[in-house]
Simulated assay, not measured.
Amino acid sequence: MEMNKHYFYVVECKDGTYYAGYTTDIDQRMKKHNEGKGAKYTRGRGPITLVFAQEFETKEEAMRAEYRFKRLKRPEKERLLAMESEERYVAAKKLSTKL
């Protein structure tokens, strides 16, 4: 039996705001967000762009990462995303294992 993958992800909305969430299927979740059927926050703010994704072994770990990210102030979020972009993350294809 294949184990589920759990992801924490961050998208940027067309208005420049960030939305962070949890999913087990990034492609499907991005599709839902862009169709206006994702989170209430992203409705009307599309199209959205995936800027970060991170894979975890458990749902709890992914949701803890989401919680920590949401508690950051905007400048801290931008620094973290810039650091991840430069060091480990390219075009939503390479998923890191640490936040």
Rank of each mutant, 00 (worst) to 15 (best):
M1Q: 00
E2K: 11
N4G: 02
K5R: 13
Y7K: 11
Y9W: 13
V10K: 03
V11W: 04
C13P: 03
C13Q: 07
D15C: 09
D15G: 03
D15M: 08
G16F: 00
T17S: 13
T17Q: 09
Y19C: 05
Y19V: 05
Y19R: 13
G21L: 00
G21I: 02
Y22P: 09
T24E: 15
T24P: 05
D25S: 14
D25T: 03
D27T: 05
R29C: 15
M30R: 06
M30H: 07
K31H: 13
K32I: 00
K32M: 07
N34A: 01
N34S: 07
E35C: 07
E35M: 12
G36Y: 00
K37L: 12
K37F: 02
Y41D: 14
G44T: 01
R45T: 02
R45A: 03
R45Q: 09
G46T: 14
P47F: 03
P47G: 06
T49F: 04
T49K: 05
L50N: 07
V51R: 10
V51F: 02
V51P: 01
F52E: 13
A53D: 11
Q54T: 12
Q54V: 06
F56C: 12
F56I: 04
F56A: 09
E57V: 14
E57D: 13
E57Q: 15
E57A: 14
K59Y: 00
K59G: 05
E60L: 03
E60G: 07
E60C: 06
E61W: 06
M63P: 01
M63H: 13
R64H: 13
A65H: 12
Y67V: 04
R68H: 10
R68M: 08
F69T: 09
K70W: 02
R71F: 03
R71G: 04
R71L: 14
L72N: 10
R74D: 08
P75L: 02
P75Q: 03
P75R: 06
E76I: 13
K77T: 05
R79M: 08
L81K: 05
L81A: 05
A82N: 14
A82P: 00
M83Q: 08
M83H: 06
S85F: 08
E87W: 07
E87V: 15
R88Y: 11
A92S: 07
K93A: 12
K93S: 09
L95C: 05
S96A: 11
S96Q: 09
S96Y: 01
S96T: 15
K98Y: 09
